[in-house]
Design a protein around this nucleic acid. Structure first.
Length: 437
RNA sequence: UCCUGCGUAGCUCAAUCGGCAGAGCAACCGGCUGUUAACCGGUUGGUUCCUAGUUCGAGUCUAGGCGCAGGAGCCA
């Protein structure tokens, strides 16, 4: 045995004897010849086991090894055009480190069809080994890294916001309740209000972490625990907010396209549908969005209502790239959004709707910065004033027009990967009535 | 919470009018020195989601429950 290497480094070892540690992903038994596909996390290697090339008892172990057994294989590496990936290991020694029970629960495929989603989710701890799932999670990791790099490079400071919070931004019915010793507490559904405080220290900040919503939303677009990145910018109004959003989103998508082409190919994603996601994005006023809906299948859609999933799809279908809808009616948006002084029935808000029916991926707005306006809004929404004292306090000490937005990580992963359900966009999805394993 | 559909082998699904419980895949045994959705032969594998009812007889029909899926609603 030699020092183990990673499969991804194989090209540097052609002609040498190497050792690989990994898991048996596939085995084909041809009698005196065994093909074993070994997965080690960095790649897969076809290993060829000829009966005459290793001790009899090791050949028998190899011939009867089970799917997903952890094994150590030593042999000579050579280029082989017949092998997937172009390299192949001629096995000289085979050691079973841990034999996997059989049958492996996720082994059945091919003519029998795929597994159902219920079965797969109950075996999420094993399903994650699937090359398709691994590709999605690599794309997710690259996206998270790209998000941080872009914001860090554009003057944003990462300021982590708390997960345990004393009060709700929007009442408590859709929050997960817990205890902070003897006091009631809630899991955060946003870090935005805290970021509004720290912009006075840094000018531009962002938080990026898990958020929690106890909504009984049983749809393919909703998870109870999901990750959101929320940038916030001082001295920034709605138009500049949209400019930042479109630059940010374009960069994220194009970077993942460039850095994760292999994974997107594994997923069979049509990347031409993503290459068009380059700034600027079209912007339509809510008034015009309503007219657009009325002319495209929803003649009775009334001004003043929020869009449901079918309406978002109808709007995005008119554009080949993400589209902004801005100036929503005041009644459908959050209490802290700044009304448009020229159209007080609307707020300075913008949603970014992804193409292909992936729905809202970004929600942003300019925030109220006037003390009286905000205090009245809190009262009008019947929110407990005492819970927002610190938030109102910000309007006493150097208030200024400021804006920010939140981007749902999983929605973007779904869009980039072309997923039909959010359950594949998280490693451990927490869905309505499902949080195992 | 509502609407629709589904629940049969480890997995994906069949089972005609209410009449012997089936297939493919997986697993196991055997064969094969170029497979990569291998192939060929054989074997194993069942609380038909649960409870009650109708019937000579229920996977199939009825009622209730449980679970899952898709859609809607909810949703910064």
């Amino acid at each position: 045995m030699t020092t183990p290497i990673k499969i991804a480094q194989a090209a540097d070892y052609v002609g040498h004897e190497i050792t690989l540690n990994g898991w048996v992903q596939k085995r084909i038994d041809k009698g005196k010849l065994q093909f074993i596909s070994l997965r080690d996390g960095s790649g897969t290697m076809q290993c060829v086991v000829f009966k005459k090339n290793l001790p009899e008892e090791q050949f028998e172990v190899a011939r009867h090894t089970t799917l997903e057994s952890a094994v150590r294989i030593t042999g000579a590496l050579r280029a082989e055009p017949r092998a997937p990936g172009g390299y192949e290991l001629d096995v000289a020694a085979f050691e079973e480190i841990s034999r996997a029970d059989d049958p492996y629960p996720l082994a059945a495929k091919r003519d029998g069809g795929e597994h159902g989603s219920d079965f797969l989710l109950n075996h999420r701890h094993l399903w994650l080994r699937d090359p398709r799932q691994a590709a999605i999670l690599r794309i997710r990791a690259t996206l998270e890294n790209t998000i941080r790099r872009w914001l860090d490079d554009h003057g944003f400071v990462l300021v982590d916001s708390p997960i345990i919070t004393p009060a709700a931004a929007e009442g408590t019915s859709n929050l997960f309740a817990t205890k902070y010793f003897d006091e009631p507490a809630y899991l955060a559904q946003t870090g935005q209000l805290y970021s509004e405080a720290t912009i006075a220290a840094f000018g531009r900040v962002y938080c990026f972490g898990p958020t929690f919503r106890a909504e009984k939303s049983d749809t393919r677009r909703h998870a109870m625990e999901f990750w959101m990145v929320e940038p916030e910018m001082a001295f920034t109004e709605l138009d500049e907010n949209m400019e930042v959003i479109e630059q940010f989103v374009s960069h994220c998508v194009q970077t993942v396209l460039r850095e994760r082409a292999a994974e997107l190919a594994v997923l069979g994603r049509d990347v031409s549908l993503l290459e068009t996601a380059v700034a600027p994005f079209p912007r339509i006023h809510y008034d015009d969005a309503v007219k657009l809906l009325q002319a495209n299948g929803y003649p009775d859609f009334p001004w003043g209502e929020d869009f449901g999933a079918p309406h978002e799809d109808a709007i995005s279908a008119q554009f080949g790239k993400p589209v902004f809808v801005h100036h929503y009616p005041r009644g459908v948006k959050a209490f802290y959004m700044q009304p448009d002084p020229e159209r007080p029935d609307t707020v300075l808000a913008c949603d970014l709707i992804a193409p292909e029916g992936y729905g809202e991926i970004v929600g942003g707005s300019q925030r109220m910065h006037d003390y009286e306006t905000l205090a009245n809004a809190i009262d009008a929404h019947k929110l407990p004033r005492e819970a927002y004292e610190w938030y109102l306090d910000l309007r006493k000490y150097g208030a200024q027009p400021h804006s920010g937005f939140g981007m749902g990580l999983e929605r973007v992963v779904m869009w980039i990967c072309g997923l039909s359900h959010i359950r594949e966009a998280l490693p451990w999805p927490r869905l309505y009535r499902r949080f195992y394993p």
